[in-house]
């Protein structure tokens, strides 16, 4: 059985017996939705978020024998999905989409809170946006965000502090305006 948890280094190896399709199914069910929501928050586009997450899972399945033996396969697939989303090609495409965001693609209307958060996120620099999303949506500790981003923990703390302050200010302001 693959241990399913949301954090932890992706390079550890644990002998947990031969992987099976059942393992992958469980893994897919557990991680697809939270990962897609994180990338939706980052890109502002649900279809693009689902694309990159699906692609990450395809890559995981292609090398499932190896990935399933990692300490934390979830961290591996999350890193692949985020790398895809922030790669050069994706960045250009999603940035353009992000700038002309709020063209909702869903049948029901989004709540004011979600629109407010999405708009506020869009104003953050990409690094701060990633740090905030990984912290609040992926529930990752600073050390794991630093590992995923390849930066020092102090840098992540700085991104989080600035991002959090800017977001809270905007959300509070909107709250006052609405009141």
């Amino acid at each position: 059985m693959v241990t399913v948890r949301s954090g932890g280094p992706a390079d550890g190896v644990t002998d947990v017996g031969p992987p099976s399709d059942g393992d992958f199914e469980e893994f897919y069910q557990a991680f697809f939705q939270p990962l897609t929501i994180q990338l939706f928050a980052y890109t502002g586009n649900m279809a693009a978020a689902q694309d990159v997450v699906q692609e990450a899972f395809c890559r995981a399945l292609a090398r499932w024998k190896k990935v399933s033996r990692y300490d934390d396969p979830g961290a591996w697939v999350r890193r692949v999905a985020w790398n895809l989303a922030t790669s050069q090609w994706r960045r250009a495409r999603t940035a353009a989409l992000f700038m002309r965001r709020q063209r909702e693609e869903y049948a029901s209307a989004p709540s004011p809170d979600r629109v407010a958060l999405a708009k506020a996120l869009a104003t953050l620099p990409a690094q701060q946006r990633r740090a905030v999303i990984l912290h609040y949506l992926a529930d990752l500790p600073v050390s794991e965000i630093a590992a995923q981003e390849g930066v020092a923990e102090g840098t992540v703390k700085s991104w989080l502090h600035r991002g959090r302050t800017a977001l809270a200010a905007q959300l509070t302001e909107k709250e006052k305006t609405r009141a």
Binding site: E25, Y28, T36, I37, Q50, S111, D113, L117, Y136, L137
Partner: peptide, 24 residues
């Protein structure tokens, strides 16, 4: 922020439509 992200997560979740393991 914790509250805003929790609401965001709850609202976005129904719109996530996985392709599924078979498609993968």
């Amino acid at each position: 922020l914790t509250s805003a992200f929790a609401e965001f997560r709850d609202e976005a979740a129904p719109y996530v439509r996985p392709d599924g393991v078979a498609a993968t």
